[in-house]
Structures are given as structure tokens and as C-alpha cells.
């Protein structure tokens, strides 16, 4: 599992984990993100059960396990949070922030010690020491209860499945040629995202945020002008289209 620092200032850092060399072939590649402040770490979309030991080993190279006090699951999918039952044993004192809608479902992954903090539909904030993070609603993109995480200071938007791409296992971490990247994103967004209305509403709200990096859970990170390119492309895309069929 590779780890790369995305942002660092005196009160917090962002790290992306991904491109795991030992990942079993048939599971989708995922990016996991971690924000670390003075005394706490938040692990975002910590991933599937198959990735758990690679993830824990990678995380612990950066921070001690006791420092991971918060988890975030953007939605209920197995590639997002099926590792929960194992994190539940590894972390001594942690809270999982996830859509209120999915509590009864996510608990099926096994959760006896971690506390569930349901995020209300309109979103909420999380304060990690001096760092304030915002949970931005992204419902129906694709899950019916779904959030992004926005860091106004680092200007980073963790966008979950939005902006996801189907990539080669050793693909670079950042988008280098947006037009060439479209082909890897199109089917994913058209097939998994059900609602044009929800999509356009999200684009309108996200345009108002100051974003330097948009970080999806699969594929590559968008930087600078590519963020706007993505928003323009996504706004014009017809979603809820049956495609990519076997």
C-alpha cells in the first residue's frame, strides 16, 4: 500500500493511501484518506475487509493506532467500510461518522466498540483539534445517503465515488490529461449515479467552494484547473443511464 502526503501545514496533514501491490485481482482498487491534526486522526472511507491489514500497516507507519479517533464512511458500500468489524477491534476509542440513513445497515459489518455518529441529511461539521472539516451532502451520488468531506483550509474535497475512475493498479495518483481521463470515468458515473437533479444540485453547491484538490475514492486526484474541468464535464453528463453491461 502506497502512502502520499497531499497537504501539510502546522496544524494538520492529508495523506492518501492506495495502489496496493498485494490487492487481490478481482476487487476494485480504492483510495483511502487520512487527516491528522495535533492529537487526532480521521480515516476516511477506510476500505474493504480484504485491504484491512495492508491499510492498518500503512496507517501505523504514519500515526499510532490510538490516535485514530474518528472514522468516516461516505456511504454503506462494502468497498468503503466492510473492514469496520476489524477496525472495531483495532481501535480503542473511535467514532464513526456516516449518514444517519445507513446506521442500521452499516452495523451489520460488526461494530461493538466504535460509536456511530449519524450525519444529518443537511450535513455537519467535525472539529479535530484546530481543524474544522465539513460533511457536504452528496446524496444519490451514488448512494441515497452520501457525504463528501471538505477542508476549507487545505482546500481539499474528498468526493467519495464522485470523480471515480476505473484505473490500472499502478496508475499515477493525479490526473495528468483530463480529456484522456474521461473515458475511464464516464460509464462509472452514468451507470452508478441515478439522478441528474441530484447531480446538478451538487455541482451548483460545489462550485461555490474553493477547491485545490478533489480526491475521489477510486482512480486519480484532480488538481487546480482539472477540478473545474470535472465540474463542467459532470454537469453536462447524462446520468442514470444503463451501460457497461456484461
Amino acid at each position: 500500500m502506497k502512502a502520499e502526503k497531499l497537504y501539510e501545514n502546522n496544524d494538520h496533514t492529508w495523506i492518501v493511501f492506495g495502489r496496493d501491490e498485494d490487492k487481490p485481482d478481482l476487487i476494485i482498487d480504492t483510495n483511502q484518506y487520512m487527516v491528522t491534526s495535533k492529537k487526532n486522526s480521521l480515516l476516511m472511507d477506510p476500505g474493504g475487509v480484504e485491504l484491512f491489514s495492508a491499510m492498518l500497516s500503512a496507517v501505523i507507519k504514519e500515526v499510532p493506532a490510538q490516535k485514530i479517533t474518528h472514522l468516516f464512511a461516505s456511504h454503506q458500500d462494502p468497498d468503503i467500510i466492510s473492514s469496520l468489524g476489524l477496525w472495531d477491534l483495532a481501535l480503542t476509542d473511535a467514532t464513526l461518522h456516516s449518514p444517519w440513513l445507513w446506521e442500521g445497515y452499516i452495523r451489520h459489518f460488526g461494530m461493538q466498540h466504535i460509536e456511530y455518529e449519524g450525519i444529518p441529511d443537511e450535513g455537519s461539521r467535525l472539529t479535530l483539534d484546530e481543524v474544522v472539516l465539513e460533511f457536504i451532502p452528496a446524496h444519490y451520488l451514488h448512494s441515497s445517503g452520501n457525504f463528501n468531506v471538505y477542508d476549507p483550509k487545505a482546500k481539499i474535497l474528498m468526493s467519495g465515488d464522485i470523480g471515480a475512475a476505473m484505473e490500472e493498479p499502478d496508475a499515477p495518483m493525479f490526473v495528468e490529461d483530463f480529456d484522456a481521463h474521461i473515458g475511464k470515468m464516464k460509464m462509472f458515473h452514468q451507470r452508478w449515479m441515478p439522478s441528474n437533479k441530484a447531480k446538478n444540485d451538487w455541482v451548483r453547491r460545489v462550485r461555490q467552494l474553493d477547491i485545490e484538490m478533489m480526491c475521489p475514492q477510486h482512480g486519480r486526484i484532480f488538481r487546480g484547473a482539472d477540478v473545474k474541468r470535472f465540474l463542467d464535464w459532470f454537469e453536462n453528463l447524462e446520468v442514470g443511464v444503463l451501460g457497461g453491461r456484461r
Binding site: 484491512f52 501505523i60 507507519k61 493506532a65
Partner: peptide, 20 residues
């Protein structure tokens, strides 16, 4: 990470981290 953790997943992972 000074204190010894009480869980074997964490133990194995932290050995890897220390040796790294």
C-alpha cells in the same frame, strides 16, 4: 508510539512500521 498496544492486528502492523 511508546505504549504496547493490546491487540494483535495492531501489534503485527506496528512491528512492520517500526522495522520500516
Amino acid at each position: 508510539m511508546s505504549e504496547v498496544s493490546s491487540n494483535y492486528f495492531v501489534a503485527a502492523a506496528s512491528i512492520a512500521a517500526k522495522l520500516d
